[in-house]
Amino acid sequence: MASNLERFPSVEWFQKLADITVEDENYRRYGRLNALIAFKYGKTNISCNFDVLDINNIHQINDDELRDVDVVVEMPTNIWDEMLENISENGHATGEWTLNTLDLRLEEEIHKNLMEDGFKADLFFRYNPSLQVFIDNASKLI
């Protein structure tokens, strides 16, 4: 049973997710990636450094620091909750609940670079298969 500290969206929760993911063969088969990505849930921002095949330097950042990351993944908290529920039920996100689908279907895209840097914002697509495995591994935490 996860402690309060380990509950989404805490640093501890993301650290556990990273620990599982870097050992996941499905993640490793998608290959290397290099991106600083922040996950924004309400007022909580967690920054993760996807560093080749490692995921490190996971820590909380404030809103000003979001400008320094490559990609911010943000969606309404109820959508975060429903997405994680879908992942929990199915072991992975199904159809409408993948990051890629939510990004296109929601009124506002869920990925952005706050400096409007198209090169950096596109890392969301360049590494989407890897990021989906990362998020899908939440099924092993919830």
């Binding site: 596109d122 697509f125 360049r126 989407n128 298969p129």
Partner: peptide
């Protein structure tokens, strides 16, 4: 399409 999308954004980069 999803897999080729990743490739496509690499050449754009």
């Amino acid at each position: 399409a999803w897999r080729i999308l990743s490739d496509r954004t690499r050449s754009i980069a």
